[in-house]
């Protein structure tokens, strides 16, 4: 009976998370655009799906993704091999990004921009190889970001100096990169980190910071995502300059 109550409560929580979107869309549809809401049943079923999905996700998060990230962090800290930890960090960043659907979409879009801007030939083949190169570039940059971020947790470097250095890198690259690529490069920072990567990487960082003496999980544990959203900007602009 108690678990039933808990399920109802978490379903209600998920519904509450969704209310703002439903409210905004209803308001604009009825009052600004002044149109009726189409396919009411389809929408109701869809909302039910979203609520269920969010509830399952949150439960899975606490059962699966968080413990995995933490366990791996503890196991690596116990093993004491920095080399393997860094290899793991890079593979995790690279592996989760290279197949990311949002990135595939952005890379395709970017290849169109490059073709229109005359940076590459406007053929299917050259566009595809451009998009693929871009994907690999972003994936390498995220792998590199997680690697540096993990190294930072181990060494206890303050995050702001690294991030500010990254910002300076972005600003310098902006002045040299072709103008057409800048918008995509800036956006690529935001799209690389998926819904599965974020909890995993966050738990890894917090786990590492709590298993190493002298590190504070709040100050040192967070920040991996920040690196992962900064380096793609620099690397994509670099890619635009080279290709």
């Amino acid at each position: 009976m108690n678990s039933f109550k808990a399920i109802i409560k978490s379903l209600l929580d998920s519904l509450r998370d969704l209310l703002p979107i439903i409210g905004v869309i209803t308001f604009f549809q009825l009052f600004v655009l002044q149109q009726p809401i189409p396919n009411f049943t389809e929408i109701a079923i869809g909302i039910l799906f979203v609520v269920m999905g969010l509830t399952l996700f949150v439960h899975g998060l606490n059962m699966g993704l968080f413990p995995v990230g933490e366990n791996m962090a503890y196991a690596f800290a116990k093993k004491g091999s920095l080399f393997w930890l860094l290899v793991f960090a890079f593979s995790l960043g690279f592996g989760t990004t290279v197949a990311e659907p949002a990135l595939i979409a952005v890379a395709k879009e970017a290849s169109h921009v490059a073709a229109v801007g005359g940076m590459i030939l406007d053929t299917d083949e050259s566009r595809m190889s451009y998009a693929f190169g871009l994907r690999i570039t972003v994936a390498v940059s995220v792998g590199f970001a997680i690697l540096v971020g993990v190294l930072r947790i181990i060494k206890g470097w303050p995050i702001q100096y690294l991030i500010i250095t990254g910002y300076i890198g972005v600003v310098i690259m902006t002045f040299f990169a072709p103008e057409e690529i800048i918008g995509i490069a800036y956006d690529s920072g935001g799209v690389t980190t998926s819904t599965i990567t974020v909890p995993l990487v966050t738990a890894l960082g917090v786990g590492l910071a709590s298993s190493i003496k002298g590190r504070n999980p709040m100050i040192d544990g967070f920040g991996l995502i920040a690196f992962a959203s900064l380096t793609p900007m620099i690397f994509v602009m670099g890619y635009g300059m080279v290709v």
Partner: peptide
Amino acid sequence: ILMGFLLVLLGLAFFLEGLEAALFPL
């Protein structure tokens, strides 16, 4: 943990399909 992964998978799938059916088109 495997159970948790399964829930995350199912959860995301329902979530995405629900958005695609209900909110994104509108």
